[in-house]
Amino acid sequence: MSTVRLGLAQTMTHFGDDEERNLENAVALIEHAARQDIDLIAFAENYPGPFTESNRYEVDAVMAESARTHGVAVAYGTSRPAPGRDGSFHITTVIVDSQGVERGAYHRTHPEGPYIYRDGKQWNFDYVAAEAFPVVDMGWGKLAVSICSEVHLPEVSRILALKGAEIILYPSGLLIDELGYTENWRTLVRARAIENHAYTATLVNLMDPAVGAQFNRSGVELAPPRDSITTGIGGIYGPERMLAESGEPGLLTADLDLDRIRYLRAASEELIVPAPYRTIPGHMTWRRPELYGELTRPRTR
């Protein structure tokens, strides 16, 4: 198939004693996605869990079985043990096809740990950054993941695109809107689509506003209360236009024409008025890697 229907699962995330409810909700959302003829459903960073070192529960078998039962490919978040490091974990997005077969997994690569995952009320484990950028062949197209604030690092997305990724997901963690990042976040995700001739999408865990209140040192109300749930940042973008945006709970969907991506990557720009495209095609072929040594020079602090 050349057209893929993507669904973003913007849903309530539970922590602590209620955390395993996330798994029940994820299964229900996969079933709901099947009823909407969604081919690929994506969840937020680390959803449905586990979010801590102490409260571990099995998610992989359940998510794979749900994908197989309902015939929907799934990109879900979890934390997986870091090999050779007891008590340490990768932040991971697992990609399972519609037959329930795990096709690949991306472990977050930036920033290096520690980061925000240790000794928090929501996350609590020793985070370990990984060092690989997998691109997963789904049969119908090539899929990749870049997690949360990695969207600020264009190098990650460019590597994925150069390896053939046609859809790049940016599952995010928490409080993006409450922190005031939403406008820039969506702009960055859309920019990644334009500069890499790829479809991109982002979403965030929704939660009780009390989660955000613990970080509000000024006591200023940054956003009006809304149904006891934080605001989403959901967005789906192509290189030529925005396809869908919503901050509300639910399944945000869009149809992705992969043939269009392949055309834009292969075509050369012509001065035709009006142009048959809404972005400059073929610009990836302009790259001159021999000039880019600065990008790999050791960093200075």
Rank of each mutant, 00 (worst) to 15 (best):
T3F: 01
R5D: 06
L6N: 12
G7E: 09
T11R: 08
M12Q: 11
E19T: 11
N22Y: 04
L23G: 01
E24P: 12
V27E: 11
A33E: 12
R35E: 12
R35G: 08
I38D: 08
I38A: 10
A42C: 10
E45V: 00
P48Y: 01
P50N: 14
S54K: 12
R56G: 04
Y57S: 06
M63V: 06
S66P: 05
T69D: 12
A82R: 06
G84S: 09
G84V: 11
G84F: 06
I91T: 15
T92Q: 02
T92E: 02
E102F: 04
I116G: 08
I116T: 08
D126H: 01
D126C: 00
Y127T: 12
V128G: 01
G139Q: 07
W140D: 13
W140P: 11
L143G: 07
A144K: 01
S149P: 04
H152I: 14
L153Y: 07
P154D: 04
E155M: 09
E155D: 10
A161H: 07
L162G: 01
L174D: 07
L174A: 08
L175D: 09
L175S: 08
D177E: 12
E178L: 07
T182Y: 12
V189R: 05
V189F: 03
R190D: 08
A198W: 00
L206F: 00
M207I: 00
M207S: 10
A210Y: 01
S218Y: 04
V220M: 10
R226Y: 08
R226S: 07
D227R: 13
I229W: 05
G234H: 06
P239Q: 02
P239G: 06
E240F: 05
A254Q: 02
D257V: 10
A267T: 05
A267C: 08
S268K: 11
V273H: 15
M284G: 14
E290I: 01
Y292W: 02
G293V: 00
R297P: 06
P298G: 09
T300R: 15
